[in-house]
Design a protein around this nucleic acid. Structure first.
Lengths: 254, 254
DNA sequence: CGGCCTATTGACGCTACTCAACATGAGTGG
DNA sequence: CCACTCATGTTGAGTAGCGTCAATAGGCCG
């Protein structure tokens, strides 16, 4: 049964993909989408812990997450790692490798994950032929830079609770955009990963989760997070200077 | 006299520009460079403290720094700011605005600065016509993402001294690339800016500068920094996982 | 010369890290 | 099916690093 589903999803075209509005196909017409679809290589699902690419490997393709999630990190000489991002369906990976011809970071699946592979050479040619695709590509690249700016902002203004709040809100938004509940979701990453990403110790993250529960902000069971008081979470994150207007709008709408 | 020099530099073409190897013209042939040159608008110098663009303003152009330096920051609702980067000659600004049609950050000159304005519309067209330009553009964008990853790595691994060391090394490299001394340079930004950028308090930065002097690593007079012991600085920065191999090579060469 | 801004230095307190023990759940093999 | 192990997460105690507050020094400009 599972296999049938997987085979089916392997055949999914860009036209039929529910992520097309988030991903590269956005604003392409049918014939253009077919041409994009032609260069997309849909790979078999990769399991939790498998690498999509590793630092130093030759750069050939960009990847778009189709399902599951991926963490991207820089390994340090001391054998540790610094996570620079978590990627959800519809998001592009490997953008930092276009400068050189090798990957400057590694990407590993946090759960069973499927991706679309976009050979860079073909992408370049197609972007040349389809201005709309080029534009959308630049848009996604620009978005990546923007979200990293936001991350820098967060890491710059210390305060652990603010960082975690902003992180959770960010996830909440991204789940909502993808049609999932913004108030209840499963974290695909470990506490260790969260701590690493936010520049905190694991223990601090753990303590914050319990404190947020005591304050009635969250309910947490293992990796299942339920946001009980969105406004408190927003108030915390706003302290970091994160722009939460769209979330506030969402709250008042409901 | 000054005015004559300025007028002269205002007329500088991409072909004659000493930064062409760092900037967009790289790897373009003569005729292509002329076409790029045609769309470049060279603006009068902007003075220290003047804005190149501000958050919320409509996005029309990218900017390449020609001389001087620029700080880019996100203003927070609380009236503070988070600096996300300092830009030196040959570097592009405004990349994060391509997603929307408004700037998502502000850019202000740290000293008297000249920039080349690249109307985005024209850039897109020209990139379409000149694949080499498009490639170099993507390269610079990719480089931007890469350097922000490095920044995230630095802010993630705390330790104030390591951050400052990595920051100074980064500047040193960039000065060297531009033909200036990697061992002695003027900081165009205030201690306040450095602290903000590195996620530290001004006092901590100040204390670190004195400590680095006591340790014989630096000599600091106001904003003039002289690196006395590059290897110690590298040792500190490497602790952060910053890849310093190219700097080590440079040291052994000299 | 006086005012202002930037930078430095000192004293103190708090946040978050470290070390350590313990709890819980998942996966494995008998 | 249960006991075992390992990975993951939680909680506690102690501490160090860095931020905050405050005072002072030095440079720049009118």
């Amino acid at each position: 049964m599972n296999q049938i589903v997987n085979l089916k999803s392997l055949k999914t075209t860009c036209q039929a993909c529910s992520l097309s509005e988030l991903c590269l196909p956005r604003s392409l017409d049918d014939s253009e989408m077919v041409r994009l679809d032609d260069i997309v290589q849909r790979k078999r699902p990769i399991k939790k812990g498998e690498f999509l690419f590793q630092v130093g490997q030759p750069f050939r393709s960009l990847y778009a997450v189709r399902s599951g999630s991926v963490k991207v990190f820089l390994p340090t000489p001391s054998g540790e790692e610094q996570i620079v991002g978590f990627h959800m369906p519809g998001e592009l990976l490997g953008l930092d490798a276009m400068e050189h011809d090798t990957h400057s970071c590694s990407a590993v699946a946090l759960e069973t994950t499927t991706v679309c592979e976009l050979p860079y050479q073909n992408m370049q040619e197609l972007c040349h032929q389809i201005p709309g695709l080029n534009h959308q590509f630049m848009s996604l690249v620009s978005k990546e830079i923007g979200s990293e700016h936001e991350m820098l902002l967060m890491l710059g203004k210390k305060m652990a609770d603010v960082r975690l709040a902003a992180f959770l809100l960010n996830l909440s938004c991204r789940f909502r955009t993808r049609g999932f509940s913004p108030n209840e979701f499963n974290l695909s990453m470990s506490r260790h990963d969260i701590a690493n990403y936010l520049g905190l110790a694991v223990e601090t993250v753990s303590r914050l989760f319990t404190r947020f529960q005591e304050d009635g902000i969250l309910e947490v069971h293992r990796r299942l997070v339920t946001i009980r008081d969105m406004s408190k979470l927003v108030a915390l994150a706003e302290y970091a200077g994160i722009n939460c207007q769209h979330i506030k709008d969402m709250i008042s709408d409901s």
